[in-house]
């Protein structure tokens, strides 16, 4: 959207988004902070720099679309949508509560959410359909989708990967938030993902590997992916740190699906303080 933003501005937004993620999960006493924090920079770069998206007109037909296939990272998406003015900030503090509107995983009732996700692999599959639909309508836009690495253990991910290549969807740009951890432990201990790059290449995708916390790399890689109009869908494997930004959450698997306690919340918010 606001394409004149500089990297330091994006970093500032990401810091606030992280602060709000931790605060909303802490207040909810429930949720998934680890994977929300690892995905933050990618989602911020997309909405604030890369996507053709007008928050004042969020259902414009030719908008770029973002699908959070790893739906448990909903707090990151909600914090970004709040920053864009699509969700009232007050709602963030009622996350996962009966009196609030924001569901534990994204639902289409929330403004700005393109499809409900949370059951892993399904958002990726839907994004293939979205890209097909946009192409049918001859829209000159992109569908972005973010998967978790553990999510790639779902069979539907590979069904969708096959279909995206078969239908030559170069208007589909996917990310894998490669933080190397899933609920039960390291991805390679739970169920080896092996060489994800080689796997997606073998499925007919152009694959890039980047540091998922480096805005310059995220932006340059997406621009490069967009310039390659070669009929191949694009996969960006983003190496990230689970729990990024909170010292005691970083690379700590126990914060996959657990909220910080009161003391931890205080410390985390202190670490993420922004002016």
């Amino acid at each position: 959207m606001a394409n004149n933003l500089e990297i330091k501005d994006l970093e500032k937004i990401a810091r606030k988004v992280r602060y709000n993620i931790v605060k909303m999960v802490g207040l909810a006493k429930s949720g998934h902070p680890g994977g929300s924090l690892s995905a933050t920079d990618i989602i911020v770069a997309l909405y604030f720099k890369l996507m053709n998206y007008d928050p004042k007109n969020p259902y414009k037909k030719d908008r770029d679309r973002f699908v959070l296939s790893k739906g448990h990272a909903a707090p990151a998406l909600y914090a970004v949508l709040a920053e864009l003015g699509l969700i009232e900030e007050e709602e963030l503090w009622k996350l996962r509560r009966l009196e609030g509107k924001l569901q534990g995983h994204p639902s289409m009732d929330t403004p700005g959410v393109e499809i409900c996700t949370g059951s892993l692999g399904q958002g990726f599959s839907a994004s293939v359909g979205m890209a097909l639909g946009c192409r049918l309508d001859k829209l000159n836009n992109y569908v972005y989708v973010l998967l978790g690495d553990g999510e790639c253990q779902e069979g539907i991910v590979w069904e969708a990967a096959m279909a995206a290549a078969h239908y030559k969807l170069d208007n589909l740009i996917a990310f894998i938030d490669r933080n190397k951890l899933q609920i039960d432990g390291c991805t390679e201990d739970v169920m080896s993902l092996g060489d994800l790059k080689a796997k997606f290449e073998a499925f007919g995708w152009d694959v890039f590997e980047i540091d998922g916390h480096n805005f310059e790399e995220i932006i340059n890689t997406v621009e490069k992916a967009k310039s390659l109009k070669n009929g191949k869908p694009k996969m960006i494997i983003a190496h990230t740190i689970k729990g990024k930004g909170v010292s005691f959450m970083e690379n700590n698997v126990s914060f996959h699906g657990k909220a910080p306690n009161e003391e931890q919340l205080k410390q985390a918010l202190e670490e993420l303080k922004y002016e």
Binding site: V128, G129, I156
Partner: peptide, 19 residues
């Protein structure tokens, strides 16, 4: 969708979001 009913329904959902 090929022999992939799950992805067929996923793609169907995505297509439906585009009207």
């Amino acid at each position: 969708a090929g022999v992939a009913e799950q992805n067929m329904i996923g793609m169907a959902a995505g297509l439906a979001t585009t009207g």
